[in-house]
Amino acid sequence: MAAGGDHGSPDSYRSPLASRYASPEMCFVFSDRYKFRTWRQLWLWLAEAEQTLGLPITDEQIQEMKSNLENIDFKMAAEEEKRLRHDVMAHVHTFGHCCPKAAGIIHLGATSCYVGDNTDLIILRNALDLLLPKLARVISRLADFAKERASLPTLGFTHFQPAQLTTVGKRCCLWIQDLCMDLQNLKRVRDDLRFRGVKGTTGTQASFLQLFEGDDHKVEQLDKMVTEKAGFKRAFIITGQTYTRKVDIEVLSVLASLGASVHKICTDIRLLANLKEMEEPFEKQQIGSSAMPYKRNPMRSERCCSLARHLMTLVMDPLQTASVQWFERTLDDSANRRICLAEAFLTADTILNTLQNISEGLVVYPKVIERRIRQELPFMATENIIMAMVKAGGSRQDCHEKIRVLSQQAASVVKQEGGDNDLIERIQVDAYFSPIHSQLDHLLDPSSFTGRASQQVQRFLEEEVYPLLKPYESVMKVKAELCL
């Protein structure tokens, strides 16, 4: 049975990233139509530049190519590739079939990587351009969430054990800070992308030097003109047959890092959902379990974690691919890159769409948070109580021993009897502590235990987050809708 299948058929496997999760716009960027249309555009740009620099290419040939950029006979191309065992030459023939007058000058002087690699770089750039505003929107939604809850005390956790208090907004800023680093890295790697350009079979530009009869300047002009037509500021000066596969490492490393950030955020949300302090959106008709109707599973956060793990592992592909590119190139890269580049971007696209949807509907339960604080705060307040007693004339050592005994009794009630923490009640009825009984409410005010959390939130948002989001103001209103 021949390899390949009808990918629109229910009898043929289709990647869930495309069929179930990723956005239509990201799927289109990695589609065959987008790819092969870009090949034709690159052939047109090459012909236009070659004509401008004096090669015998007519206006009629150029116009014929322009008129057929979208006229792609995919069936013919597939048949040609089956016959020739070469995808680029299959599309040269297919393009030439609908451009008979231009057929002889299509791909003039070029090698397969002229269309293959340059198209990949265009796709990487455009895919990054799709991700950047999506990530900015996630940051914006979380920034709104953090600002609104900047002063809401909550129990902090280290080692997932109760620690000092923080605020809900401050905790959210930990998430935002990681995503801001990801946004900066995505922008950097996007701006650092260079075009492969017009380089020939081993990167020496020998074929173009021959076409222009040894004119170095025209060869350099050709490279520059096509690079500018493709919208790049610069091209690699040095290439082998391909652009260095280190570029793929750079791009997928940034995406993998984004995956790590999203995994951490969504894990926190899942843990908070278990504590009943916070939940992701839950639709009115949504079913959490087929057997347990009360369940409210954090399905979206779980999906993000599941896909983020996949995204983090994909960076190993370009690392290994770059390491086995012998001399000017081997074909070890080809099949692998067809999979890992598309999957990385479709996965990143999915987790950003999902995280935006989550961040637009996060639900906080202040009463649950308050109750958990009441359970733990008495123990945390013991040092403040000791200091207040010393100020009232008591002995630190005597007070410490009193607190120690009462704390152990209260802990026994919590752990052995399943009761509430009654340390404060014990202190309130103990005559030894009568000098500070009137101060206990103040000493137990949760806001006095959150330090500068709310001020940190305000400063972080104003100095770091809002300036970073400013270039994306025009796209901030787009909502994230999930079908599944």
Rank of each mutant, 00 (worst) to 15 (best):
Q416V: 08
R452A: 14
T111V: 00
T166C: 10
G231K: 11
K402G: 05
M89H: 00
D32L: 14
I57F: 07
L155V: 02
S112R: 00
R309G: 03
A77T: 15
P281M: 12
C305T: 09
M387L: 11
G418V: 03
V92Y: 03
L468T: 14
F160I: 05
E370Y: 12
C173E: 02
L128P: 03
W39K: 00
A411L: 06
L341I: 14
K224T: 11
H263L: 05
T354I: 15
Q51E: 06
K218S: 12
I436H: 04
N118G: 09
R85G: 01
D59M: 09
D73R: 07
V138W: 12
T350S: 15
I385Y: 08
D32I: 13
E79L: 14
Y34L: 06
T330G: 11
R245D: 00
I424T: 13
A163G: 15
L132V: 14
S306K: 03
L17S: 13
C172E: 03
L444N: 02
D191L: 08
Q375E: 06
F36T: 15
E60K: 12
D144P: 12
E417N: 10
D215C: 09
H91S: 13
D441N: 10
E277P: 01
A260I: 00
H91M: 12
K82R: 12
D120W: 07
P366Y: 04
E64N: 09
E360S: 11
Y13S: 09
Q375W: 05
S395A: 09
A392I: 08
L53C: 15
F160H: 06
A49K: 01
P133F: 14
K402R: 14
P56T: 13
S301Q: 06
S434H: 09
Q456N: 06
E481L: 11
M389S: 07
I105D: 07
R337A: 02
K218I: 08
I269S: 04
D422T: 13
H7M: 15
M76I: 14
G109C: 03
G96N: 08
G197P: 01
T94K: 07
V475T: 14
P133W: 15
E50G: 09
T94D: 07
E463W: 10
V29W: 06
T94L: 15
L69M: 13
D87K: 00
V138R: 02
V390N: 05
M76L: 11
F449D: 05
K66V: 09
M316H: 14
D248E: 10
Q408R: 13
I62K: 06
Q397H: 07
L444W: 10
L352W: 03
K66C: 12
C266P: 05
R85T: 05
I249G: 06
E213Q: 14
C340D: 05
L183V: 14
L423T: 03
R404K: 13
G231R: 10
A392Y: 08
Y365I: 06
L193T: 09
D398E: 10
V138S: 14
L271R: 02
Y21K: 01
L130G: 08
E50P: 00
V324A: 12
M476A: 15
G451D: 03
R188Q: 08
T321V: 11
H107P: 00
P318F: 04
P10R: 15
E70A: 12
S301D: 08
T239L: 07
H159D: 00
S407K: 01
E81T: 01
R234T: 13
A410H: 05
H217V: 13
E376D: 10
E60D: 10
V189L: 09
A110Y: 00
M299Y: 09
L131V: 10
F236G: 02
S151T: 12
I57E: 00
S9T: 14
I237R: 10
T313L: 10
V368E: 03
M380I: 05
R396K: 04
P24R: 13
V364P: 09
Q325D: 05
A256D: 05
A2C: 15
G451L: 04
Y114R: 00
L307M: 15
I72C: 09
V465E: 02
L482W: 07
Y365T: 07
L275W: 14
Q456E: 02
M380R: 02
L461T: 03
F195A: 06
L183N: 05
A22E: 08
G259E: 01
G104K: 15
F345E: 02
D144I: 15
A410Q: 02
D6P: 07
C180N: 11
A90P: 03
W43P: 00
N357P: 02
P366A: 06
Q63S: 11
G288V: 03
K170S: 02
F433W: 05
Q177Y: 14
T167S: 08
R190A: 10
R83C: 12
I62P: 02
T244Y: 01
H400V: 06
S19P: 06
K276Y: 08
L142G: 02
I265Y: 15
D59V: 10
H159G: 02
T321G: 08
D11T: 08
R459K: 11
P24Y: 12
Y243F: 15
Q61V: 09
G393N: 09
C173M: 03
V414Q: 04
R149W: 13
F145R: 06
D430Q: 12
A90L: 00
K224G: 10
N384M: 13
V324G: 08
A206S: 06
Y472F: 14
R296M: 11
D178N: 07
D445T: 15
